[in-house]
């Protein structure tokens, strides 16, 4: 079994994995970091999004061994102690989540968007979310939250 090492939320981690182990399985099952979710098996829903070297990736579509040496940020790594990341807080203030299952992927994806486009328009947010499904909110408040989060992040 190959050994894989990476930095997750600033902490060096490693583990023995089957070659076919997905990054999301490594996070959830080997590291017991269950904040990242799996909602589908065709890389459509985006619940499993994490930042890999600063870009959002669907961790169900990346093998753990492909993340060797990478810097991974998951939903668990965003808040500063009890203080929410501005994007997390914007989701809370704007009721951008209901059941919470798609939320980790939405927040990670939103942070990636803002890093590339600090002041996204509503249309740009909606198009960016092509790869993230939510069944609860109708996206209305997610879009509002992301625009508010972008502003709070200094965009």
């Amino acid at each position: 079994m190959p050994t894989v090492s990476m930095k997750v939320n600033g902490v060096d981690v490693s583990g023995d994995v089957e070659a076919r182990t997905l990054l999301v399985q490594f996070l959830r099952e080997t590291l017991d970091m269950t904040g990242t979710h799996v909602g589908c098996d065709t890389s459509q829903c985006g619940a499993c999004c994490v930042l890999m070297n600063g870009d959002s990736v669907k961790s169900c579509s990346v093998l753990a061994v492909q993340a060797e040496g990478a810097e991974i940020t998951t939903i668990e790594g965003l808040a500063n102690g009890d203080e929410l990341h501005p994007m997390q807080d914007a989701f809370r203030q704007n009721h951008g989540l209901q059941c919470g299952f798609c939320t980790p992927g939405m927040v990670i994806s939103a942070i990636d968007l803002v890093s590339k486009n600090p002041k996204p328009t509503e249309k740009e947010v909606r198009e960016w979310l092509e790869g993230n499904l939510c069944r609860c909110t109708g996206y209305h408040n997610i879009v509002k939250a992301i625009q508010a989060g972008a502003q709070a992040m200094g965009g």
Partner: peptide
């Protein structure tokens, strides 16, 4: 919301 936004929800899986 705080637990859902920080990855601390407890879903069955």
């Amino acid at each position: 919301d705080h637990r859902f936004l920080t990855g601390r929800g407890t879903y069955t899986d």
